[in-house]
Simulated scan of single mutants.
Amino acid sequence: MIKFFRRIRQQLLKENNLSKYLLYAIGEIVLVVIGILIALQINNWNQENKESLVEKQR
């Protein structure tokens, strides 16, 4: 997967098409941010489940 993205990035740089490269870079950043937000949401969900289990045991 990393080779795929690297190939796209190198091809866009070879073509000297800066606008397409910037659009690609912004898209890649957005995907990373979305992944981080999903991970945080899952972490919060797991933490809430643990807290509810502790409350039920009391």
Score class of each variant (00 low, 15 high):
V54Q: 12
Y21A: 02
V32S: 07
L40A: 10
R9S: 10
G35L: 09
L13K: 08
L18G: 00
L18D: 03
N43T: 12
A39C: 06
N46F: 06
K50S: 08
G27P: 01
F5A: 13
W45I: 01
E48W: 13
E28F: 14
I26S: 05
W45L: 06
Y21D: 01
L23K: 15
N44M: 11
I38F: 09
V33D: 02
V30D: 03
A25Y: 08
Q10E: 15
Q41I: 12
N16R: 07
N16C: 06
V54N: 10
S19C: 02
Y24C: 00
W45D: 09
E28P: 03
E55I: 03
S52K: 14
I34K: 08
L23F: 12
I36T: 04
M1T: 13
L37I: 11
K3R: 13
I34R: 09
W45F: 10
V30S: 04
K50I: 06
Q10H: 12
L23G: 14
K20H: 00
N17V: 01
K50A: 10
K3D: 03
L18A: 04
Q47M: 08
F5P: 05
N46W: 07
R58E: 01
I26W: 01
K50F: 08
A39Q: 04
I36F: 06
N46Q: 10
N49E: 15
A39Y: 04
E55S: 07
Q11D: 13
K3F: 08
W45P: 00
S52A: 13
F4N: 14
V32R: 09
A39N: 02
R6Q: 15
I36D: 01
G35K: 06
L37N: 08
E15D: 08
L13W: 05
E28V: 08
K14T: 06
G35N: 13
G27V: 00
Q10A: 13
I42R: 07
I26L: 09
R7N: 10
K14S: 10
L13I: 03
G35P: 01
I36P: 02
E48F: 10
L18C: 07
I2N: 12
R7H: 12
E28L: 14
E48A: 12
L22G: 02
M1I: 15
E48K: 12
L12Q: 01
R58C: 03
R7M: 08
M1R: 14
R9K: 14
L31W: 04
I42T: 06
L13V: 02
W45S: 07
N43G: 14
K56Q: 13
I2T: 12
Q47G: 02
G35V: 01
Y21H: 07
Q41F: 13
E55A: 09
K56F: 12
F4G: 14
G27A: 05
N43E: 12
I34W: 11
I38S: 02
I36L: 06
K20T: 00
